[in-house]
Simulated scan of single mutants.
Amino acid sequence: MEVLVTGGDTELGRTVAEGFRDSGHRVVISGARRDDLEVAAKELDVDAVICDTTDPVSLAEARSLFPQHLDTIVHVPTPRWQDGDPRTYSLAQQATAWHNALDTMVLSAALTLQTIGDNLKAGGAVINVVPESPRDGSAQAAIKAALSAWTADQATVYGTRGITINVVAAGRGSQPGYDGLSATPPSTAAEITRLALFLSTSSARHVTGQTLHVSAGQLAHFG
């Protein structure tokens, strides 16, 4: 199986890529930060495509470099950090926070799929990742809802080719000592990777248009 993992220049993207590689798949990673991406590609022994998925020009220039016959696309956003307390943001800082969340989580996923969606084989899978559980009422929470709605709509589009598309999101973590958990529960990155692997298999053909949370098996409540 041929897999593209965007955000390969992040720790989460690298973990996801490593999980697919260790499962015997051919993996290509992409990312905008050349140095981080090249280090990850060398250490994982995978191919890399330098590309900013929030930039249509960058995507257009890199289009021919992506694998032409993909089985799975795992979209891992690359966060743009903003310092300070959101409660004290100026109007300009607030606008930047919203633009950053929208660009990295939704725009990048939409542009990537528009650019190389035709490269997906029938029966393939798209997994959009939300790396962290956002605070209620935050820009990230609103943008996560937008990503979920867009993903559900795309399921009707790509379903005609037997392609599934889902969101895998970090849930609210379990508390230490929670019944049924081991002393060292798996990391969020490991859980995201495991669920992404499952969604790319034939056993998950019935799951599409969904937002699925990983939270160490804890029953979580999401507003």
Results as ranks from 00 to 15, higher is better:
Asn119Ser: 13
Gly137Tyr: 05
Ala92Ser: 14
Gly8Asn: 01
Gln140Ser: 14
Leu65Ser: 15
Tyr89Ala: 06
Val214Phe: 09
Glu11Lys: 08
Gly124Ala: 03
Ile192Trp: 04
Leu181Ala: 11
Asp85Ala: 04
Thr104Ile: 04
Gln175Ala: 12
Gln140His: 10
Ile165Asn: 08
Asp55Asn: 13
His75Trp: 02
Leu70Val: 03
Gln114Lys: 15
Leu212Met: 07
Asp103Ile: 00
Leu65Ala: 14
Lys144Asn: 10
Gln94Asn: 13
Leu212Asn: 02
Ala17Leu: 00
Val49His: 14
His75Pro: 05
Ser174Val: 14
Asp136Glu: 10
Pro176Ser: 05
Gln114Arg: 15
Val57Arg: 14
Val167Ile: 03
Ala220Pro: 03
Ser148Leu: 07
Gly173Leu: 09
Ala41Cys: 06
Leu197Glu: 08
Pro134Trp: 03
Gln175Ile: 13
Gly180Arg: 04
Val207Trp: 06
Thr164Ala: 01
Val49Lys: 15
Thr151Cys: 02
Val214Ile: 14
Ala141Lys: 01
Thr208Leu: 02
Ala190Tyr: 08
Leu199Ala: 12
Arg172Thr: 15
Ala95Asn: 13
Tyr158His: 14
Ala196Cys: 10
Leu37Gln: 06
Val74Ser: 00
Leu199Gln: 13
Ala101Gln: 13
Gly137Pro: 06
Ser64Glu: 15
Ser148Gly: 13
Ile116Thr: 12
Leu102Tyr: 08
Ala41Gly: 07
Ile127Arg: 03
Gly13Leu: 07
Thr115Pro: 05
Ile143Met: 05
Gly24Glu: 08
Val16Ala: 04
Leu113His: 06
Pro131Met: 09
Ala216Met: 10
Val130Arg: 00
Gly8Phe: 01
Gly223Met: 09
Thr208Trp: 02
Val27His: 13
Asp153Thr: 03
Ala189Met: 01
Val39Ala: 10
Gln93Asn: 11
Gln140Tyr: 10
Leu181Gln: 15
Pro67Trp: 10
Ala220Gly: 12
Gly217Lys: 04
Gln93Ile: 02
Thr193Ala: 13
Asp9Lys: 00
Pro86His: 08
Gln94Met: 08
Val57Thr: 15
Leu111Val: 01
Ala95Lys: 09
Ile163Asn: 11
Arg80Asn: 08
Glu38Leu: 15
Pro134Ser: 01
Asp9Leu: 00
Gln218Met: 07
Arg205Phe: 00
